[in-house]
Amino acid sequence: MKHIISVLVENEFGVLSRIASLFSGRGFNIESLTVAETEDKTISSMTIVTHGDDHIIEQITKQLNKLINVIKVVELTESVQMAREMVLLKFAVNGGAKRLELLRLVEVYQGRVLELGVRSLIVELTGERAKIVAALEVLAPFAIKEISRTGMVALARDSIKS
């Protein structure tokens, strides 16, 4: 089962490596990991998407908490989180009907066209996981030249927090 874990860490050199080596050393999976500074420059926020049964997720959160540089660990279950991922896609298209069709589909998924060239097109898509998965499936038949994904970022929702 997929889990999103949000981790606040001290913004110090080597912290990312400590987290990554914890996952590799203990055989835990990382599906995606994002990291960036928070409003407080001494603290960074990480969003880790991982999978495993309850036992493994419990160990992951405990082991993360045990790291000296980790300030807070929150497991975000689906009902209490807002999670988004951004994808940048570059398509090889030469204009014509194919391009029009692509642009229409991008619109359906509320994507934005960032660059429209003679032979290519760069599109930005943002959304929750299900939407990204669906969009990528629908867009797969077009000639995708390159793809770059941010991985999930997530926050707990205030309204539902116990």
């Binding site: 001290e10 603290i43 980790v70 300030i71």
Partner: peptide
Amino acid sequence: KVAEKTSLKGY
């Protein structure tokens, strides 16, 4: 600096 305090937010 005499007895500088430790600052370990996460420990």
